[in-house]
Design a protein around this nucleic acid. Structure first.
Lengths: 145, 145
DNA sequence: CTTGACCCTGTGGTAGATACAGGCTGTCAA
DNA sequence: TTGACAGCCTGTATCTACCACAGGGTCAAG
């Protein structure tokens, strides 16, 4: 199949397929006489594997690692477990900080309900006061990373 | 104060301060005779405001918008509410999809506990099978964005 | 007089794509 | 036959929000 078809069948962009090839994640395909890429079913499996890992939030470096593990089936799978555990920890961490963020935003939002002038807007006042180090009426803000 | 001090007092990097200036988020400071940037307390408030918004997960475009609102206190604050509401929706969305992701990763992790060979590893098998379109023993995987 | 901590500009890199520019190939209809 | 249009090619630039240099200037202390 050609690049347009494999892209459609794996639900991603044509440019993304070429990008994965450049990155060494997807095997280099054969070429037709006119220079067009010619993909096999194996490429489709590879591409779906990559997209699946990406949908689990893994970075391309992790995908590369998993693919090399696949290529060496005699190795022990401790490293795979570690990789997945690391991924779980990262995601958990992200969830926690985003939930905190969500609560902070709700509190901020509650400081302004009515349609009033900006000079009286609780949100702007809140954000500005925090910036002036005068504390904040709705919560103790965290520092950016 | 000089750039090193304002950076330290707003808990960010010197390069980041120059970056905000280039991006037009932080007012251009005066210069000393030797060319060094000279900041006032006003700049510190501006910088803290930016860092505070960033800590709430807002993008620099939103910060720019908020700063322009600050500069026009006679406007109604409907737009500010919309901006914050949009931010809340984005964060909520992110939390939800990450929580789903976390559950999926836990299920995936549960398919491999023992120290065994990769050829028998449930994780690799799971990821590969999903890629082959044979379904997945632990859950229905979502597609990447 | 040298060391070391600052500061300057400018450029390039990160992740994971996305979006062209500019050009070739292939197929269909008028 | 000609023209339109979709699809493919390479290569480069763009995006976010910075971080990390290189290569150089400035300044106070020892």
């Amino acid at each position: 199949m050609r690049i347009g078809e494999i892209a459609k069948r794996s639900d991603c962009d044509v440019e993304t397929v070429r990008f994965y090839e450049r990155e060494g994640l997807l095997d280099v395909p054969a070429r037709e006489a006119n220079g067009y890429r010619r993909y096999s079913e194996m490429h489709l499996v590879q591409l779906n594997f990559i997209r699946h890992c990406r949908s689990l939030g893994m970075g391309l470096a992790d995908v590369r690692t998993l693919r090399s593990f696949q290529a060496n089936p005699e190795l022990a799978c401790d490293e795979i477990n570690q990789l997945i555990d690391g991924q779980i920890a990262r995601i958990h961490q992200q969830v926690e900080s985003l939930r905190l963020l969500e609560r902070q935003l709700h509190m901020l939002r509650d400081t302004c309900h009515a349609n009033q002038k900006i000079s009286e807007c609780g949100i702007i006042r809140n954000l500005t006061q925090a910036a002036e180090g005068e504390g904040c009426s709705c919560h103790p803000f965290g520092k950016p990373n």
